[in-house]
Nucleic acid binder design. Structure first.
Lengths: 334, 334
DNA sequence: GCGAGACGTCGAAGCGCTTCGACGGAGAGG
DNA sequence: CCTCTCCGTCGAAGCGCTTCGACGTCTCGC
C-alpha cells in the first residue's frame, strides 16, 4: 500500500504539504501541487479512509435509512436512494445503507462510532421514537417527510398541500364543479407523517376557494374497496365530474370501476392522481398526475445536510413545489 | 467522546485488555470481562470506526453495487439490497451503497481507500469491464448473477437452467405435450449474463427428455409484442396447451392476449412464469411461478463473502434451486 | 528602507484503536 | 522441587492521516 509519506518522498516535499495540496486547506504553489499530483498518479496513491476519518473526525459517509413498511411504493424508495447516493458523490461522500429494521440502535451505532458524519431518514412515523434520538445525536440529520412537529430537525418533502390545491385548480379550470378525493387507506391518516392530511387540507381549501362542492374518501388499497368507493360516490354525488386519487395501487382499478359503472374517463369523469409518472403513463388511460419528485427530494436532502455539515444552518421545513403533468384523463366538463 | 482509555481506567485495566475483551482475540478472565462490560455500559462507550479500521485494517463495511439499467425489476433489486444489509449486520458489518453509474472508478475508489473490506456486485454484463478489475482488486468480491466465465470470481444466483426444467416438468406432469417459452426481449439474450440462455437450455433439454414438442420465442416487453407472439403461437402450434413466460412486464398482457384469442387460462392453456411472487399472485389469474429467491441470494452472497474474508475459500459457482409455487394458471391437459 | 503581512512549507503531535512481545503467576509434568 | 507451559494482563509501538504552530521568504505600503 502506498501512503502519503511515499508520495511526499517521491515529490520531494513533506507529508503535510501533500495533505494540504489534497485538501486545499492551505495554499500550495502551483508548481508543487503539480509535482505532487504527478507523484500521486505515478504511485497510484489513494488515502486510507480510516486514517483520514481518525485524523480529521470526518468519515465522509452519510447514513441513509430506508423504509421497509408495507404500503410503501418500492420504486419510489429506490429513486430516493439512488438520488441520495448520486448527490452525495458530488460532495465526495459515500452512503451507508441502513434498514428501518435496525431502528434506533442502528442510528445510534453508526453515529456514535463515527462511522457516518450525518444521517438521512426516510418515512418517519408521526410520533417516531427516532425523532428524539435524532435531536440528541451529535450529528446533523435530514428527514424526508414530516413528523408531527419538526422542531429542531430539518425536513424536506413534496408540498402535499400545494399538490392538493394544484389538482383542484386544474379541475376547476376545466369547469368541474363537483369533485371528490379518493385517498389513502384510513390507517395512513392515523399513522403517518401528515402528508396525507396535508393533501386533504389543500384539496378542501382550494375547492372552497373556488366554490366547488367536494368530498373526501379514504379507501383501502384493494380493487374491491375501489369499486365500493366508486359506487358510493356516484350514488351520493351524481353530479360528480372530477376525481383526485391519492392511492397508487387502486388508481387503475378505480378507473375500471367507474367505467364499469358507465362513466367514461375522461369523457364523463376527469381523473387526476398523485403517483409516480411511470404509473400514470402506463395506465389504460394515461392519467394527469403529480409525481413525487424523488430525485429532487433526495438531492435536496443531501444539499441540506452538507450545509449543516459545513457549519451552516438549514431551514426546518423545505417544501418542494408540485408539478402537474396533463395527460389524457382530464378534459373540460362536458 | 469516551474512548477506550477511559473505559480502561474506569475498569482498572489497560486499554489493550479492553480491546481483547471486546474482540475476544485473547483470553480474558470472566471477572475482568464483566468489569469491563460494566464500565462500557456505564460510560456509554462505542469504539471509533475510523480508528478501528486504521489499526486493524478492517472497516467492517461491504460495498453493494446496485444496477440502474432499464428493464430491471426494481422491487427485486430492493429485496436483494435489504437482504444483503440484514445479513451483513449479522456478521457485524455495514453496507455501503454504490450505483452502477460509478462504474469501475467507484469500485476502485472504495477498495483502494480501504473504505470497504469486500464487494458485492449485482447484474454484471456478459463481458463486463469490471470483471477484470474485481479479479485484480486486493479485496474479495461476490457477484450476483453470472458473467461469461466466472474464472477466479465467486458468483451466486438462481439456477435458471433448473428453473426452466422445473417448469417443463410441471407441465409435462400435467400431461401437456406441446409447450412454448415466451422469453425476454432479444437484446437480453445478447447482452446479459446468460441467465436467459440457461433458462432456455433447461427448458429445451427437459422438453426433449420428456418427449414434448417445444419452441422458444423471445419477445419485446410490450403488450403489442405479446399479442403478436400469442397469435403466432396459436397459428404455428395449434396443439399448444402449455406456456412458460420469462418476461415480467408482459405476463399479464400475454394472458389477456390468449384469452382475447379465445383460449381460457388454465382451461385451454396452462401458464407458468419465472417472476416475483407478488406479480404472479396479483395477476387476474394467479400464475404458477418460480420466483427469484432474492433474500436467499443476498444472504448467500454475504455468507460467501464472509467466508472469503475469514481466509476461507468459496466455490466459483453457487446455484440456488428453484421452487415452483403452483397457482391457478396450470391444470391437467383437458 | 523597513515593518507588517501573506505565502508556502515543514516538523511534530496527535486522532483512538489493535497487536505484538513480554512478564508474572499458577498449574502440570518429570 | 524445579522447570515448562499456558493463562491473563500490560506497555509500547504503530496504523496513515490531519492539523497546528513555526519559520523563512516575498511583497507591499508608507
Amino acid at each position: 500500500m502506498v501512503k502519503i509519506t511515499d508520495v511526499a518522498r517521491h515529490a520531494g516535499v513533506s507529508p503535510s504539504t501533500v495533505s494540504y495540496a489534497l485538501s486545499g486547506k492551505r495554499p500550495i504553489s502551483e508548481e508543487t501541487r503539480r509535482r505532487i499530483e504527478a507523484s500521486i498518479r505515478q504511485l497510484g496513491y489513494s488515502p486510507h479512509a480510516g486514517a483520514r476519518a481518525l485524523a480529521s473526525s470526518r468519515s465522509n459517509v452519510l447514513a441513509l435509512v430506508i423504509p421497509l413498511r408495507a404500503g410503501i411504493h418500492v420504486p419510489v424508495v429506490m429513486q430516493f436512494a439512488v438520488s441520495v447516493v448520486t448527490s452525495a458523490r458530488q460532495y465526495d461522500h459515500d452512503v451507508l445503507l441502513l434498514t428501518q429494521e435496525e431502528g434506533e440502535a442502528g442510528l445510534r451505532r453508526v453515529a456514535d462510532t463515527a462511522l457516518v458524519d450525518a444521517l438521512i431518514v426516510m418515512d418517519l412515523q408521526l410520533h417516531d421514537p427516532r425523532l428524539q434520538l435524532l435531536r440528541a445525536l451529535d450529528r446533523p440529520s435530514v428527514l424526508i417527510g414530516f413528523p408531527q412537529s419538526p422542531d429542531g430537525l430539518t425536513c424536506i418533502d413534496l408540498d402535499f398541500r400545494a399538490a392538493g390545491e394544484l389538482c383542484v385548480e386544474h379541475l376547476a379550470g376545466l369547469g368541474h364543479r363537483v369533485i371528490g378525493l379518493v385517498g389513502s387507506p384510513p390507517e395512513v391518516y392515523v399513522r403517518e407523517t401528515g402528508f396525507a392530511q396535508r393533501l386533504v387540507q389543500g384539496f378542501t381549501a382550494a375547492a372552497d376557494r373556488n366554490g366547488l362542492s367536494s368530498s373526501v374518501h379514504p379507501c383501502e388499497s384493494t380493487p374491491a374497496a375501489a369499486r365500493q368507493v366508486a359506487e358510493q360516490l356516484l350514488r351520493e354525488r351524481p353530479a360528480l365530474t372530477g376525481v383526485v386519487v391519492h392511492n397508487e395501487p387502486i388508481l387503475e382499478p378505480l378507473i375500471d370501476a367507474f367505467e364499469g359503472l358507465g362513466l367514461q374517463v375522461p369523457g364523463d369523469l376527469s381523473v387526476t392522481a398523485i403517483c409516480p409518472d411511470e404509473l400514470a403513463e402506463r395506465a389504460r388511460v394515461p392519467v394527469t398526475s403529480i409525481a413525487i419528485p424523488a430525485a429532487e427530494v433526495g438531492a435536496g436532502a443531501v444539499d441540506l445536510l452538507m450545509k449543516k455539515l459545513g457549519g451552516g444552518t438549514a431551514p426546518e421545513v423545505t417544501l418542494l413545489s408540485p408539478r402537474l403533468t396533463v395527460r389524457a384523463s382530464t378534459m373540460p366538463r362536458p
